[in-house]
Computed example of a mutant assay.
Amino acid sequence: MLKLFPTYQNLEKEIKQSLENFSTTGDLLVAGKRNIIKLFPVNDSLTLNIKSFKKPFLLNQIVYGYFRKSKAKRSFEYATILLEKEIGTPKPIAYKETTSFLGLLDSYYVCEHIYCDLTYRELVETEYPDGENILRQFVHFTYKMHENGIEFKDHTPGNTLIKNNFDGTYNFYLVDLNRMNFHKSMDFATRMKNLSKITPKQKMVAIMSNEYAKISGFDEKSVFETMWQFTQEFQLGIIKKKNLKKKLKFWKK
């Protein structure tokens, strides 16, 4: 089953061909353990970004086939919601699901490819030029998301693409969209926790807290202390997971 965004109905043939020949054609962008992303140029102004989700194991085939929306369908629907609320994300184009009597076999999400200048990760890992300005604008982007009740559960360094407008302003685009919650309104703790995965650096958290307090009216001390507490808890969880993996590897020897 192929579902196309209304404004891309005229590209049905090209999209179908790209999906049918996904394994043998296209330019590889990401070869992950779980998912593969390839690029398929359509014309001078549009390149398809196609994400192939890993085939689910048997139980999840049933779950995604009968009880829960697939990751591809959620990505498509969530991108549509984001654009309706004027939150940056690559334009959704299509999604495809292949099923059997058991349930979901495979799925693909197709969106416009964004040629970005950097991701948030560069702000974390390097002394990026104009870094503080970008960081403060990113906080405005996230605040708008929060004000619209959007909780992006994978709000991590690699999932925000950044385009430089070369006039001191930047555009931000969320990717990897299949895990989101939508609220009528977001409480303070949920907002702060939503920013806990974005950087382990206290200096960056302090800048983010300062800007978030300025635009929200929240007390800056409370913003920083809460955001930093959630950040430390998240980083501690990462350390514990790494230590557990090391122990499991040791016992397997």
Rank of each mutant, 00 (worst) to 15 (best):
N10K: 15
L236W: 06
K16F: 04
D117A: 12
T199C: 06
A94G: 07
K184W: 13
D167G: 08
E112D: 13
V223E: 03
F40N: 05
E233T: 12
F67I: 04
G65E: 10
D154R: 13
E220M: 08
R121Y: 10
N49Y: 12
F53D: 07
G217F: 07
K91E: 15
S185A: 15
D130Q: 13
T126M: 08
D167R: 12
T25Y: 06
K214E: 05
K247P: 05
E211L: 02
V175G: 01
A206Y: 11
I134S: 06
E112Y: 01
S52H: 15
T169K: 05
K163E: 05
S18G: 15
I150F: 14
N35W: 03
K73S: 14
P92V: 04
F138M: 04
T160P: 01
F182M: 14
T199V: 13
N35G: 09
Q202P: 12
N60F: 14
N133G: 14
K253Q: 12
Q235S: 10
K253S: 10
S45G: 14
K163F: 00
D130F: 13
L2W: 02
T142Y: 10
T231I: 09
N165I: 03
Q235C: 14
L236T: 15
E132H: 00
I134W: 03
C111Y: 00
Y128N: 03
K55C: 11
L118Y: 07
K13F: 14
F152I: 09
P90Y: 00
L39H: 10
H146A: 09
G88Y: 08
I93M: 13
K253N: 15
E211S: 06
S209E: 05
Y78H: 15
L161A: 04
L48M: 09
K73D: 06
N178I: 09
L105A: 00
K71Q: 13
H113L: 09
F230W: 11
I238D: 02
D219G: 12
A213S: 15
D176M: 05
L29Q: 04
E127P: 00
E233D: 11
Q235W: 10
M145I: 08
C116I: 00
E132W: 02
D187C: 10
I162D: 02
T89C: 15
A206G: 02
V124Q: 05
E122M: 09
I150A: 11
A94I: 09
E220F: 04
K221L: 02
A79N: 11
G158N: 09
T126L: 07
I215P: 01
K242W: 08
D27L: 12
K144I: 06
E20P: 03
F67C: 06
F152G: 01
D44N: 14
K201G: 02
I239E: 14
D117Y: 13
Q61H: 11
T126S: 13
A94Q: 08
G149R: 01
I50C: 10
Y64C: 06
K85V: 05
R121Q: 04
K221V: 11
S222W: 12
I87R: 04
L248N: 02
K249A: 15
L248D: 00
E77D: 14
F141K: 01
K201S: 06
H140E: 08
V175W: 03
H113F: 11
M204T: 03
T80P: 08
D130L: 12
T98K: 11
G237I: 02
A206E: 13
F67R: 06
N171P: 00
